[in-house]
Design a binder for these strands. Structure first.
Lengths: 199, 199, 199, 199
DNA sequence: TATGAATGAGAATTCATTCAT
DNA sequence: CATGAATGAATTCTCATTCAT
């Protein structure tokens, strides 16, 4: 078979996998193969595991996310707006593409490309965070990993007991809460109490 | 009557199920039966589905949570402390008992007792929230469901890329952020910028 | 427990078993016990097997059949009418009581009472047949077992691709065919018709 | 392509299934698989349900039956002989192949091929019956469905309290009775006998 | 390289029967 | 004599992966 055929197959599998996610059926390589009218083994050749296919599906969203973050860093926005914009973009990506959330939250990745993408995402998160830290606008203890985690947490929160259609509105509100909570609050604020809430 | 035997078996199953959760193996009734050295059908008699066992496992934690919330409502703490204490307790329950999270986040419940417990939890959440609202100490748009969702979100956030041992510390910090973000911030604050973070 | 209680249980089981047959659910002693709100073991004590319960359920119908056959033999009807009446009664019993068919068709019986009842039924069939043979009104090769078999065959035929409500009408027609076919037909007979076989 | 293997497996399954029927063990796909030394899933791929396998097993017999019926319709026999021959063939098929009876008596069919075969059988039954009706040689009320039912009834009758080896003789006699009973009998007919219908 | 049939371990569930109380 | 919990073999079906062609 020619390269072209192989590419066609690859695309066919990816498209079918996407359709599975959209109807949120579990990504089963066997079923994907059947639905794509392609031999199982062919699918396995292209994507050794379901996870590999998932990462491939997530890739465009992740790339866009990385590109956006890079743009933010070089853009005209002030540091806080850039930071907030990045979180918003990350959240929206997770809502828009069901492949993103599991890949971002996963401890390890199957494909080196994914690992690298995620690493860049982390790095960019770090840079944005450093910028915000430098401006003294965020709680000093916040670290890179916290940002990623809070992003995932906001998405998850909007997922609990809520239909997909309600989620964008919920994440907007929840992110707003989180950002407000992350803001550094200096001397003049100190008096305002409420400060020491929980536990 | 084999009551005693039955009770022993029941306990045995519950304990074994607990062990599964602790080692976070999936709760499979068959395996639980095997490990408990109990006939499969006996397990099925006691717990028609894995979900039923899970809810049974979650029950003590949920009951404690409800009791604590009731105590908070009647206690001496001010409204904010009570509210924060409730969130903390809920989060800690989810961290301490792996059965709690899925049950709280589930859309429906198998056992009527669970449904009732969760309903009471919701009601108490509502009461605490109303109290805080009455004191004008929280963003006015926050609703009962938001509180539950944010609680789950904090737990989830602390779960991402983090070993179990790190989670308590993380949830403490994240809850702090969220509480800070939920606090109503009045006129005198308005100027302080950062105000419009989101999207 | 007193005898009276035992009798009540027995009746309860029988009634419940009957209900099962009527809704044609399979007779499962376990389920019968549950539905009757009686311990399984109690049911097993009264009826060691499902077959035993079935035979018990069939018994009244069989007894009535035997009684009717005896009456026919001693009655005023002519031999053919008695014979036809017996077949009709047997068929109707099978249609009316789902317990009858399997018991009549079974090769062996669990309960001695059933065995005896069936034996009497066979004997009576034989007597009626002998009477009809003596009058030269039936094909000479027909034997007792044939009569039973044809009876079952007619019932079964009416069961194929036919709703229960249609069956009585069908059996009537099919029995008519069979009786007509059994009639001895030789020159001298031609006029005699035997025309009035059925019911 | 594993076509050859697949075909071999298919045949193996069919043969094994046949053996089960012959020893009249219940057709259980798992057992068939084990006995055929073939993976369970392979069997399930070829035959999604036991019923599907049963119908496949019945197919050759049904096809032969259809072919015979078509031949009878076009053959030289007179209408009654053709009709009787068809019934005889149907009965013998049921006796010879245990798969036939349940398939013919079933209300619905799993495989479209079976449904079609049975439909053709019904149609042919109708044609033969129409021919016999046209010649005025059968009770006018007899319909197509009656013919099928009586065929099944004769087979069933021969099954009651009778070893397989006796059944052919019994069905011959019982069919004779039924055919005699179906014959139209009016004055002008009397001489014609129709006496020697079947077989 | 593509194919899709084959695999068989595994998961969920049911049921007739026994047995301890 | 009654109870109903316990049993575990049996059954049905699924799925991720391999392998022969």
């Amino acid at each position: 078979m020619t390269r072209r055929d192989a590419a066609r197959n690859w695309q066919n599998i990816v498209d079918t996998g996407r359709a599975f996610l959209d109807e949120d059926r579990p990504l089963r390589l066997n079923e994907v193969a059947r639905e794509a009218s392609i031999g199982v083994a062919t699918v396995y050749r292209h994507f050794p595991t379901a996870e590999a296919l998932l990462e491939t599906l997530a890739r465009p969203s992740l790339e866009k996310l990385v590109a956006d973050a890079e743009a933010s860093l070089r853009g005209d926005d002030d540091e806080w707006a850039a930071f907030a914009g990045f979180l918003t973009a990350g959240i929206n990506a997770q809502l828009a593409d069901p492949a993103v959330q599991p890949v971002v939250a996963a401890a390890t990745h199957e494909l080196p490309e994914t690992a690298e993408l995620v690493a860049r995402l982390n790095a960019l998160t770090g840079e944005l965070l450093a910028w915000v830290h430098a401006a003294g606008r965020i709680r000093p203890e916040v670290q890179r990993a916290d940002v990623i985690r809070l992003m995932c947490g906001v998405v998850f929160a909007a997922t609990v007991h809520a239909a997909p259609s309600e989620r964008p509105a919920l994440t907007r509100r929840y992110l707003d809460v989180v950002l407000e909570g992350l803001l550094r609050r200096d001397a003049s604020d100190q008096g305002r109490g409420g400060g020491e809430p929980g536990r």
